[in-house]
Design a protein around this nucleic acid. Sequence first.
DNA 1: TAGATTGTTAATCGATTAACAATC
DNA 2: TAGATTGTTAATCGATTAACAATC
Lengths: 223, 223
Amino acid sequence: MGDKDVSSATVARLPNYLRSVMDLAAEDVANVSSDRLANHAGVNPATLRRDLASLGVTGTRGVGYDIKYLTFQISVILGVNQEWPVAVVGAGNIGRALTSYQGLASRGFPVRAVFDIAEDKIGTEVSGLVVEPLSNVSHRIPELNVTVGVIATSADAAQSVAQLLIDAGIQSILNFTADSLDVPEGVTVRRVDLATELQILSFYQQRESAVADGTGIPLKPKP
Amino acid sequence: MGDKDVSSATVARLPNYLRSVMDLAAEDVANVSSDRLANHAGVNPATLRRDLASLGVTGTRGVGYDIKYLTFQISVILGVNQEWPVAVVGAGNIGRALTSYQGLASRGFPVRAVFDIAEDKIGTEVSGLVVEPLSNVSHRIPELNVTVGVIATSADAAQSVAQLLIDAGIQSILNFTADSLDVPEGVTVRRVDLATELQILSFYQQRESAVADGTGIPLKPKP
DNA sequence: TAGATTGTTAATCGATTAACAATC
DNA sequence: TAGATTGTTAATCGATTAACAATC
């Protein structure tokens, strides 16, 4: 029953699949084919079927996937029905924005604590939370059942903050710094590096004008 | 002279290479081998050599890469020495944070304008800029030489805002909404979807406990 | 049964990397 | 020249997808 490996590419597509099947759920039919679902999600039908099968999610030959049940299954797999309390370290612009951002709470990721090391930030309020000293991390994380740590500090503090979070029991880290973190087995890190994203964009733009000039290297079209 | 395709995986590694070679530039040697550089960047040496070669960047056999010149070349390729003025659409939490975020300006991406459609946001100040009405996009983008547009609106406004930016001449878009954008050839989009990042993290955590229970599907170790 | 659609095998594609001839 | 290290070929790996037998 699907007890096979799940590739990280598959995992990255899951939220996309959930969105698509929820969209199609609005229609008045009970089943959906991999073809329609894949079209809506912008992937190849075989890829979608393979992805779902690798998670033990199956449809019915000749019929398709039961929309309601499929929605339920992906939801469970993604933990969408659970709450995953979040702690943010760093009460700078990014940290405060994330803490206030409704898009997270509404998707099951309520921010339960904000930490900072700077005296002038500690004690200030952000979206109903009081910024706590970094030294509180170790006891507050377990106390608040926080499962995800967000690092929104300067890059040079990132690694030590990560260690602090891990010591407090955190297994999932979202890293907003440019630093890439060294973490033990069992801890998952995702990095969101804004300046790097912009640098990639400017590379393409740079290249586009260079190609127009005839000076540059042509780009392989993105797949 | 390297007039070959550049894969998007290569592009994504470039900022990483630049960081590494700048780190190593601090040392008192003129050259660096692909081996040292790749180790520092956390990639395979052959991959690094291939990446650089695909961009027309070469070293010297038996010697390595000239650190200073290599830094210069990657900088030029990434456009690090230029300014890429940015416009942010959406003056909510994320939009305001990005506008205020020093990490962007210091890396050559100064935010030059912020737009919003909400009456109560227009006219307010964010980090020295006055929030402008969305209708200003078409003339302000060319006026301010903005090259990168950031969409930090609600998901349902994303596509129409993208069109507005493109009509104003924008070729590079950083999209913070959950919506995936339909854009014409020649426009590059990168998406940063925070809730999806968190969902991927919670998938792994979910799965980890499920495996501990013996109930779940074992995960393929991440490469 | 006839038609539809899955689950999966086998083929394809693209990216990574080992290995090595070229050459400083 | 001997040693080092590139640039690139060829092998490997993993992921995607076409194709189809299984089956509802």
